[in-house]
Design a protein around this nucleic acid. Structure first.
Lengths: 117, 117
DNA sequence: TTGGGTACTAACAAATAAGTAAGTACGTAT
DNA sequence: ATACGTACTTACTTATTTGTTAGTACCCAA
């Protein structure tokens, strides 16, 4: 779905290869990923439906799509229980956990920047 | 230009108010901002033309637009010298400098994640 | 045989971000 | 009078992300 050779994606690729920050942002950026990561940091394992309940306003398409990206990027594990109705849980990988400090710093920074505003 | 009451922007606003990480990301996210910030962290003050030279592939429209956003968000100061041809320098504000630790962590994380790949 | 619960999928539409190309302004130098 | 250097601006196009709506699959239980 992404155009490999648009200037847009060439620029992105180039920056990701030359700048760790860009590379990091490309994994955790976007509207929902950090929230998914945050819930998983605090609650260990969560079922798909539990995540959906916590992420107010997210659509199923977005949730699935972001979970899939996180999984492909090695930040999240998907655990399938072979039963009906289906049960699927998500948890952070070790790499995912290693984001904790960064996320906590960003949270502090964002909160003290705008105190209740 | 932004639609105040699209679901998209409502979701963003809501998250930014309830999550420091989202708020932080909304200030430093996107394709170019972190690179601008990085150069200013390392080189103190830079002229517009110096920034443009460092940011390979950026268009003038993007550079100006990102600088303007950074300025409006209080991360960057714009210093105008009243002379012709024009001379304008950019530097980080105190708030901008306070991102140093976060950016350094993200850089490390991004680099060790994918060692030369 | 109809409906329920859970985790998805697919086709489409809207919104936003990023990029392209061509200009503007204004003193100064030629 | 023309051209130059610097920091922008404008109008427009393309790319990418996000959201909407309506499904699917599966076994079980009534």
């Amino acid at each position: 779905m992404r155009k490999e050779n648009s200037t847009n994606s060439i620029n992105e690729k180039h920056l990701n290869q030359n700048c760790g920050i860009s590379a990091t942002l490309s994994l955790i950026g976007g509207r929902w990923k950090i929230n998914i990561l945050s819930y998983l940091l605090n609650e260990d394992r969560l079922r798909y439906s539990a995540l959906r309940a916590r992420l107010e306003g997210i659509s199923e398409r977005m949730l699935i799509s972001k979970l899939k990206e996180l999984e492909q990027d090695g930040l999240v594990n998907r655990i399938v229980y072979p039963q009906v109705p289906p049960k699927v849980e998500y948890e952070l990988t070790e790499l995912g956990h290693s984001l904790r400090e960064i996320l906590e710093l960003m949270d502090e920074w964002g909160e003290q920047k705008e105190p209740s505003h």
